[in-house]
Design a protein around this nucleic acid. Structure first.
Length: 579
RNA sequence: GGGCGCGUAGCUCAGUUGGAUAGAGCAUUCGGCUACGAACCGAAAGGUCGGGGGUUCGAAUCCUCCCGCGCCCGCCA
């Protein structure tokens, strides 16, 4: 990375200039072009700690730094900024062997570690709805980013397949089958949402049925074979629904990534046992709880994590503790990321703390809740239909594809129907995902069809468009991008600016992995696309002044296209040749 | 009551962990196709970064106190 290259020279220089051990170089991208490419801010911070004039320390840093081969201009500005401008030759050298850096995964490199990513994790009792979108999309983008960097990624779809509502559903299923026979019941399951609603209605109206439901839960949990078989059938149908949606969304989750709640059933008594052995368990109002000093409730009262109900039943805290154990011991993860709604922040803080206290974390593994906010409608309230119902994911995708198709037809009427549909699907998918991924996940965000499908600004269609323009260059030139042998020679300022942005990609991906923030990649790709259009406006490619310039510009365009395609792919968004 | 998070341009959002004159995109106003894709580009205008105080060379960012909103806080997940 460019940044590493400079830091490797600046860190020793900062030290040699007298800065205390561990002083940050604080190298950042320059805020303005006149400040060069990168700026080092660390001299000022270090000077403060040394109580020395910052400019003087900055001068000492420059005196000690060996930068000549990398930097064409290094100057001190303001209170003690060090502004650096990289040599074109350095940029060119790193730009040209692009296949190795951009296209090929780094494989078992420096970061070859194992990361568990817990995402999507819908409840199988119901059909997937927009509430599952964020975890699914953000988690999948992160999984792709870690994959690309050579991590061993262990996707975990922690689906909800256990719990009280399954008693109700199974009881309802049984009653339908008693009435109508199996075939009809299968048909009923084709619309899970409606099935759930009907079961719930009966549960609320019919006390006998409610009682039956509760009995059914007990039978299920005791392992009654008939009950288990019906449950398994229900789960299979529900999982198939999920898989169909994952397919439409081009999400990389498959059945092998499913590690359901029920998979931890056998481990739950052991969790309680260990907690008891560790002396962490306390009974409170009949429930088994863990109280840790760091968690306080009202009036400094201790705040429990309840791990076993007074009736002996286990809770999701118990399951999550078992999952921590499994992910640490059996999966041998180095990091475990939980893409779960931010409302569960306290829950995970407690679970991770209890797991630590109980010794469940037996090896260095960082457990990280990656919270995200709620998807809101344009009225600022949680995104729902007019009637107040949750919006089914399948309906959302249908609507996006319908709108995208109309849009593509309007913008490019010349396209044949088949290609138009293909493009519309790519645009729809990009719109849905990018709308979500381009915002900081921690905040709630407002869902808007118009913003989403807009072709302007920081949107997926804009990026897809930039990519298709590059492809158009190559098809007009009548050559395949791979066949190009020329290397990039940077001359125009727009070429240089584009090169610089492209070479920042790895830095950005590093941040995405460190912080679990895919929106940083979105922002970066948008910068790539705008830098490309500036280049495209000012630097004729096909009608370049000479063949050398043309070849160089094509090589730069190719590199840019590869970065856009790769970047979008890491976000789970497809590109198209034409649109 | 306690805890967590949020509050930045009319709207939707960034802000690289304390750095230079706070940035984009929509929308608005103006300008650019006999131009490799105008599905584009350029320009203008738009701000007391919720408010006060503090820390220092320097604060949207850190500390503190208020205001407003959201969420969480013992047997749902």
């Amino acid at each position: 990375m460019l940044k590493d290259l400079l830091e490797a020279r600046l860190a020793p220089a900062l030290h040699a200039a007298g800065a205390p051990e561990g002083s940050a170089v604080a190298l950042t991208v320059s805020t303005k072009p006149e400040f060069g490419d990168y700026q080092m801010n660390g001299a000022m911070g270090a000077a403060k700690r040394l109580k020395r004039p910052p400019r003087e320390l900055a001068e000492a840093v420059l005196a000690h730094a060996q930068l000549d081969d990398l930097v064409s201009e290094a100057s001190i500005a303001g209170p003690g900024f060090i502004n650096l401008r990289l040599r074109e030759a350095v940029l060119e050298a790193r730009l040209n062997p692009f296949e190795a850096e951009v296209l090929a995964p780094r494989g078992a490199g420096a970061e070859a570690s194992r990361v568990v990513i817990d995402y999507s994790s819908p409840n199988l009792a119901k059909e997937m709805h927009v509430g599952h979108l964020r975890s699914t999309i953000i988690g999948d983008a992160l999984a792709r980013c870690f994959d690309h960097a050579g991590w061993n990624v262990l996707r975990q779809n922690h689906v909800g397949d256990w719990g009280t509502q399954f008693g109700m559903l199974l009881a309802f299923l049984n009653s339908l089958e008693a009435d109508d026979g199996n075939r009809v019941a299968e048909a009923e399951l084709s619309d899970l949402e409606q099935f759930y609603r009907r079961a719930k209605a009966r549960f609320d109206e019919d006390p006998a049925f409610a009682a039956l439901s509760r009995e059914t839960v007990v039978k299920l949990q005791q392992g009654d074979p008939a009950c288990r078989a019906a449950w398994q059938r229900f789960i299979d149908v529900s999982l198939s629904h999920c898989e169909a949606l994952y397919g439409r969304l081009q999400v990389t989750l498959t059945r092998e990534h499913v590690h359901a709640e029920s998979a931890y059933n056998d481990a739950l008594p052991g969790v309680i046992e260990t907690l008891r052995d560790q002396g962490l368990l306390q009974e409170s109002d009949g429930a088994q709880c863990v109280f840790l000093d760091e968690f306080k409730g009202k009036d400094d009262a201790p705040l429990p994590l309840i791990v076993q109900k007074s009736d002996g039943g286990y809770l999701y805290a118990t399951t999550d503790l078992a999952a921590v154990r499994y992910r640490c011991d059996s999966l041998e993860a180095d990091r475990a990321l939980y893409l779960v709604d931010k409302r569960q922040g306290l829950h995970f803080k407690q679970v991770f703390a209890v797991a630590q206290a109980a010794g469940f974390i037996t090896r260095p593994c960082s457990f990280e809740h990656m919270p995200f906010g709620t998807m809101l409608g344009e009225d600022g309230r949680p995104f729902r239909t007019r009637a107040g119902d949750v919006i089914k994911l399948s309906d959302l995708i249908d609507e996006a594809e319908r709108r995208a198709e109309a849009l593509v037809a309007e913008k490019n009427p010349a396209l044949a129907a088949a290609e138009r549909t293909e493009i519309a699907k790519a645009v729809a998918l990009g719109a849905i995902k990018y709308a979500d991924l381009s915002k900081h996940r921690n905040n709630d965000y407002v869902f808007s069809w118009d913003t989403m499908l807009s072709f302007d600004g920081n949107t997926a269609p804009y990026l897809q468009y930039a990519y298709s323009r590059i492809q158009s260059l190559f098809s007009k030139a009548g050559l395949a991008p791979e066949s190009l042998k020329a290397s990039v020679k940077l001359e125009a300022p727009q070429e240089r600016a584009l090169a610089l942005v492209l070479l920042r990609t790895e830095e950005v991906l590093q941040q995405v992995r460190d912080q679990g923030l895919p929106h940083l990649l979105c922002t970066h790709l948008y910068e790539v696309a705008t830098a490309f259009t500036a280049f495209y406006e000012h630097c004729p490619v096909l009608s370049a002044p000479d063949s050398g310039t043309q070849a160089s510009r094509l090589a730069l365009a190719r590199r840019c296209g590869a970065t856009l395609r790769q970047g979008l792919e890491l976000l789970g968004i497809p590109v198209v040749q034409r649109m």
